[in-house]
Design a protein around this nucleic acid. Structure first.
Lengths: 197, 197
DNA sequence: TAACCTATCTAACGAGCGTTAGAAAATGCA
DNA sequence: TGCATTTTCTAACGCTCGTTAGATAGGTTA
């Protein structure tokens, strides 16, 4: 039994792992559009083509599933941004590349959908909540290393600048139709032009 | 009966009206911290010091109550901003005054608490949803009149600039502790300094 | 084929939800 | 005081929720 379990975990390509990813994906879509509480286990199971009881073979609880989605969301953005900045020398262009990757990851509707929800469900286990916060902090620290290189006025608080930057970006999914006339990347470029001068 | 009803409606100071405002206030607090679905009618009633059934004397349904809170939220911000800009000539200073009023209204925790939630519950009645959207549009049009006066580069799309501005502001309640060391007004002033040059 | 693990389904549980009808209490007016 | 109106409470309704135990089908290995 050990051999099989380890094999599946290592390759992450077993039937169970694929099903788990599928559930994660449809759950991300539902959580993103309807919110955590308004999405029922039965909703998710139906969208995944199974009965609600079967979900519990893959996830221990609804909260467990939500945490996995939240975790994957931050990871998706983190990886997109991390992959976008190497090889770029100019600090402002580094930040612009990071911002475009960030926004495109948020608006990407093929496959797993990122949860932007800033409000964690208010009954989350302390330890789990701390883990999510730590993951988000890790992302913000990466952004900070990019912002640190920017030639900004001394009087400007870079923590506030980071929140300004993140606020403008994270608000985009609220108003921007990813299939609309203006490409998300162009929106980001105007943001950067405004922040830059 | 007509006389009494009209009187109450006109003065808006009857016992019923006061109770209605009280329910609205505690509901705004709960909706803001826990979200719509996670807040039960019994939660709200308990916080208002009554039984859950009594709530239905003042509001026809939970959705009805939510709409009233959402409506009052936009009104509170609208009135705060509307009251902050007259008498200021310089366009940038007008926008800064609007932004400070906007943020202070969002962070104000005495009495009614503003709902910033961008996501309307996804089963809202069409007509009601349209009414809320229209009210929000009215606010955005007011902001647009201020933004229109700004001496911005021709290449800059003012609709995108408005969303940049609103995104940065609306994100503040996510990360800013209103009782923290940095005054919200100072945060806004740095935002404006960044947007300005 | 037989035994075993994997994955899913069935069917129900207790709890909490929004909501309601009608009784009861508080209030204002004659 | 007595009456009518306004406001609140009581007690339940039907429904959906997250979750679980046990039966069942499919796949793999011996």
């Amino acid at each position: 039994m050990d051999g099989t379990a380890q094999k599946i975990e290592r390759e992450d390509a077993g039937r169970a792992a694929a099903r788990r990813r599928q559930v994660l994906t449809v759950a991300s879509e539902l959580f993103a559009t309807k919110g955590f509480e308004a999405t029922s286990i039965r909703d998710i199971a139906t969208a995944a083509g199974m009965m609600s009881g079967s979900l519990y073979y893959h996830f221990a609880s609804k909260e467990d599933l939500y945490i996995a989605v939240q975790d994957a969301s931050i990871s998706k953005i983190f990886n997109a941004v991390e992959g976008a900045i190497p090889g770029i020398a100019d600090p402002w262009e580094r930040l612009e590349a990071a911002a475009i990757a960030h926004v495109e990851a948020m608006l990407d509707r093929s496959g797993f959908r990122v949860l932007v929800t800033p409000l964690f469900p208010p009954g989350l286990d302390r330890k789990v909540r701390d883990a999510l916060v730590a993951q988000r902090d890790r992302f913000e620290r990466m952004i900070d290393t990019v912002i640190a290189e920017l030639p900004l006025p001394k009087s400007l608080d870079r923590r506030i600048f980071r929140q300004h930057y993140l606020g403008a970006l994270n608000w985009i999914p609220v108003w921007c139709d990813p299939d609309g006339p203006v490409a998300p990347a162009d929106i980001v470029r105007q943001f950067m032009a405004t922040l830059r001068r």
